[in-house]
Design a protein around this nucleic acid. Structure first.
Length: 929
DNA sequence: GCGATCACG
DNA sequence: GACGTACGTGATCGCA
């Protein structure tokens, strides 16, 4: 059993279990166990109450100590004082009796202590534990709707009514009894209590009692001075029944010094054992709560999601559709049903130039088909033989698409895909605008970002217990890999139709969970509508100046050769300049330079930081390497790769945006990555100059200024930061001024630089080590900076603590727009946990910024159309959007884009800081940025 | 296929 | 006091 000391930070929850069970029994509809008719209604109510309580408390008033308190059977000391105490109580109903021991088991299953003590009532134990904890400065919440416990309320001890889910404090006591908690015993002594058969003084109720006490102070004073009471009847009553009132007082006064068996420290909360808890709930046959508990525990990583029952897949039953009539029949059934899973097969991975090879549809689990459209003789070896002499009999592409198009564009037929953005582009090449859509990848992402991947194979194994046929299985691997057009129709049908089948089944399994996990809005307003917008951007592509890239490549090449020769000379021998391993050996083994560090694989570290350090000490070779590496990077990753990425058909570069790649909800860009085009160095910016607009057009770049710091100021609610943004101040200078007490005017750039590093550190989940490394100062010194920062902005520390606490309690963090990012490691120990804590700080900030720019992008096509602009959105780089438009439009476009981006937080949520967007038009991306 | 490195926000 | 560290990505290279 868990023990934890009681401190000021502790919070003890005491559940008045017996009273709850009685109330639940009478308030809830009767329920019996299906298998044997055992009455279990009160047990179910109790379990639901506990589960709900524990869930509701996560992330805010998290208990550190927790216990369920029961009445012991038999008489208590009150019966010795007054034999008639509770004598009016009839025996508990027959259906309730067997539930008492079950409720105790339920408490234990939830890892709570079930406490009772012979001779005392639950209320006395609650009073005793409450005072024990309170004496050590802890807070206490008594979960009960029993007014007798109200006498215990103080500023540290509150009550929570589990029926009304209402927190009760001093004001509520005054409302009920007309006196504060300290007067409750006296009021009850006078008024008595018919429920417990406490006599009190006849004819005196709560109102009169409170009034009398207001006049006389206490019951003792009142009884002593009873003769002074003006009303004759009341006077007589109090004189005659004085002893009865004194006895009543002994009855209602809770005993605060029960010699408890279990010290309060032993009541520390612990996570329930999943096996015990779920085992108990299953034994009770509570289906709903068992499922909810299991889902919650899966979410928290306490238990593995059960391997789903493997669904049967009969790939031989899929239809291969090769005649128009059968196709028309499938399309009609899809249309009648109102939803259908769709998948396309193409002859390359590139959705812009990939040619459509076939389409698959699924209507229900196991009911799927493949429509081959551009398959060739499987013996054909590609190239010129693509449309060999004897192509397989298949429906003509144009005729098939003519049949499919009305269904694919029918607003009453939902098209379900896995990463459907790809299929949108494929169909768009054939002038088919698929709508409306659902995307299982994005549904999974909204539900489970941070828990697992969202690729189809991963999802299928996880949720369907089925490993789908892989592309390699049908097309082979490596050099011998076939184009899908060359795959034989029987194999192609099994593979392609299965993908649609899997997609449909995933949709059935995952879609309903959006609502129960409260991420419907994230999916429907942020991710799903963005797919079509991104598809258009990808299809549009961006123009690059091939000749300029080629010239740069040649220039870099020459300079690299010179640097390589120089490096060999400085090293005293020839070596592979591109090999970090060889370089490390030369620098640290042969030249014996100081400051060598090893990576975890035992190799010398030779990264930029190390080489810069050596160069600063006056060593020549490291500088040469740094220069060479920069050119090498620019050449291989940019000037060469970008030329190769120019699409033959369009003459432009088409990236692909991954929507479910980055856990925070950011996009990522691949093939090629256009989100990491150089900008920080002079040489690098030459590559940005190669990003250009068509003749007569310009590029417009618009980026959010300091969006993450603004979001931090809003979410952590820091008045000083918010005001600084409202006043349009330089936020880094303002931070420096606050921290170091220097004026903003004429500030030393080094001081501002340090404040800037701290601001970034805050966003990243700061550590003294990391900040020290960034600034090149000892981590102790960096810790001082951090301390000063938190002294100036205490709200930031509070926000961070609360965010981490929320993450620990729920296993996830949320963005301002409700996107969940799961952090399963937050409960682990050691470095993994620290990492998860930094993620917990960063993810809501980075993710909220990602949500905002997504909202802007979703509105952009309509905003452009309404304004009658021809402008096309081309690129997104996290906080920047790049457009291409006719030169004449540029001015108007800039205004519209700024307006749309700056208002993208609203209207559902308005940040308490302004969003500022800087935008510029120019002939090249370098100049527009 | 993986680690090291470096380009971006 | 020790753990290990700034957050999020993707592409290329050398080397096993």
């Amino acid at each position: 059993m868990a023990t934890a000391p009681i401190t000021q930070d502790s919070h003890l929850y005491l559940i008045d279990a017996s009273a709850y069970v009685f109330r639940a029994f009478h308030a809830l509809p009767p329920l019996t166990r299906a298998s044997d008719g055992l009455p279990v209604g009160a047990v179910a109510g109790f379990c639901n109450m506990l589960f709900k309580l524990l869930e509701d408390l996560k992330g805010k008033e998290r208990p550190t100590h927790f216990a369920c308190i029961f009445d012991a059977s038999g008489d208590t000391f009150r019966n010795e004082i007054y034999p008639l105490y509770k004598a009016n109580r009839s025996d508990p109903p027959e259906e309730l009796v067997p539930q008492f021991p079950l409720v105790r088991r339920a408490a234990v299953a939830f890892a709570a202590h079930a406490i009772e003590q012979t001779g005392f009532e639950a209320d006395d134990l609650i009073a005793t534990y409450a005072r024990l904890a309170e004496a050590k400065g802890a807070r206490v919440t008594i979960v009960s709707s029993d007014k007798d416990l109200m006498q215990l309320i103080t500023d540290k001890v509150l009550m929570l009514d589990p029926m009304k889910n209402k927190l009760l404090g001093r004001d509520d006591v005054i409302e009920k009894f007309g006196v504060g908690p300290e007067g409750v015993v006296d009021v009850q002594s006078l008024s008595g209590d018919s429920v417990d058969n406490v006599p009190g003084a006849p004819g005196i109720g709560i109102k009169t009692a409170a009034q009398l006490l207001g006049e006389y102070g206490t019951v003792e004073a009142l009884l002593e001075r009873a003769g002074e009471i003006k009303q004759p009847k009341r006077r007589e009553t109090l004189i005659n029944f004085a002893d009865q009132v004194r006895v009543s007082k002994q009855l209602v006064q809770l005993k605060e010094d029960v010699p408890v068996v279990l010290p309060v420290e032993e009541l520390a909360v612990q996570d329930p054992d999943p096996k015990v808890l779920i085992g108990f709930l299953e034994e009770m046959e509570f289906r709903t709560i068992t499922r909810r508990v299991r889902e919650q525990m899966e979410l928290e990583g306490a238990i593995e999601a059960p391997a789903p029952e493997a669904q049967p897949f009969d790939v031989s039953a899929y239809a291969c559709i090769r005649d128009l009539k059968t196709l028309e029949d499938w399309v009609a059934r899809a249309t009648a049903q109102g939803h259908v899973a769709v998948d396309t097969e193409t002859d390359s991975l590139d959705s812009v130039s990939g040619g459509l090879v076939g389409v698959s549809l699924a209507l229900a689990p196991g009911e799927a088909c493949y429509i081959p459209l551009a398959h060739v003789d499987p013996e054909a070896k590609g190239d010129g033989d693509m449309f060999g002499a004897d192509p397989p009999r298949q429906i003509k592409m144009a005729e098939a698409l003519k049949v499919l198009k009305p269904m694919l564009e029918d607003p009453a037929v939902l098209k379900i895909g896995q990463n459907i953005k790809y299929d949108l582009s494929v169909f768009a090449q054939h002038k088919i605008h698929v709508h409306p859509i659902d995307d299982t990848m994005l549904i999974s992402f909204a539900l489970n970002a941070g828990i697992h991947g969202h690729g189809m194979d991963d999802l299928s194994e996880r949720y369907l217990g089925h490993k789908p046929i892989t592309f390699k299985d049908v097309a082979g691997t490596g050099k011998a890999q076939k184009s899908f057009a060359q795959v034989a129709l029987d194999k192609a049908t099994e593979y392609a139709a299965e993908d649609a089948d899997v997609t449909l089944r995933l949709w059935q399994a995952l879609k309903p969970r959006l609502r129960t996990e409260q991420v419907t809005a994230v999916y429907e307003t942020l991710d799903r509508p963005l797919g079509p917008v991104l598809a258009e951007m990808e299809q549009a592509g961006v123009k690059v100046d091939r000749d300029m890239l080629s010239r740069l490549s040649a220039d870099f090449n020459q300079r690299m050769a010179a640097l390589e020769a120089e490096a060999h000379e400085q090293a005293g021998r020839s070596f592979n300049i591109g090999s970090p391993k060889q370089l490390g050996e030369i620098l640290f083994d042969e030249m014996n330079l100081p400051g060598g560090k090893k990576t975890k694989t035992g190799a010398w570290v030779t990264d930029g930081d190390v080489l810069e350090g050596l160069a600063a000490d006056g060593h020549a070779l490291p500088r040469t390497i740094v220069d060479w590496r920069m050119l090498s990077k620019l050449r291989s990753t940019y000037t060469e790769a970008l030329q190769a990425a120019i699409n033959k058909k369009t003459g432009r570069v088409h990236t692909s945006y991954m929507m479910a790649g980055a856990q925070t909800g950011r996009l990522s860009s691949t093939d090629p990555n256009l989100q990491n085009i150089p900008v920080r160095t002079e040489e690098g910016r030459k590559i940005r100059q190669a990003f250009i607009a068509e003749e007569g057009n310009v590029l417009v770049s618009a980026d959010y200024s300091q969006i993450e710091l603004r979001i931090l100021a809003h979410m952590a609610d820091i008045p000083a930061l918010k005001q600084a943004f409202k006043d349009g101040l330089d936020i880094h200078a303002m931070t420096a001024s606050e921290m170091f007490g220097v004026p903003i005017e004429g500030m030393d750039p080094m001081v501002r630089r340090q404040a800037k590093a701290i601001n970034f550190g805050i966003i990243y989940g700061i550590s003294g080590f990391g900040l020290g490394r960034q600034l090149g100062i000892p981590s102790g010194e960096a810790n001082q900076y951090i301390k000063t920062y938190f002294e100036r902005f205490p709200g930031i520390r509070q926000y961070m603590d609360e965010t981490k606490e929320f993450a620990r309690a729920t296993g996830f963090v949320k963005t301002a727009f409700g996107r969940k990012i799961h952090l399963p490691d937050i409960k682990s120990k050691g470095p993994a946990r620290s990492f998860a804590e930094r993620q917990a700080i960063n993810a809501p900030i980075q993710g909220s910024a990602a949500d905002i720019i997504k909202r802007a992008m979703i509105r952009m096509p309509e905003a452009l159309a309404e304004a009658g602009l021809k402008a096309q959105m081309l690129l997104q780089v996290h906080d920047e959007l790049v457009f291409e438009c006719p030169e004449k439009e540029a001015e108007k476009l800039i205004k519209l884009v700024q307006k749309t981006m700056a208002a993208a937080d609203g209207p559902s949520l308005r940040l308490s800081v302004p969003l500022v967007v800087e935008a510029k038009a120019a002939d090249t991306w370098a100049a527009a940025h």
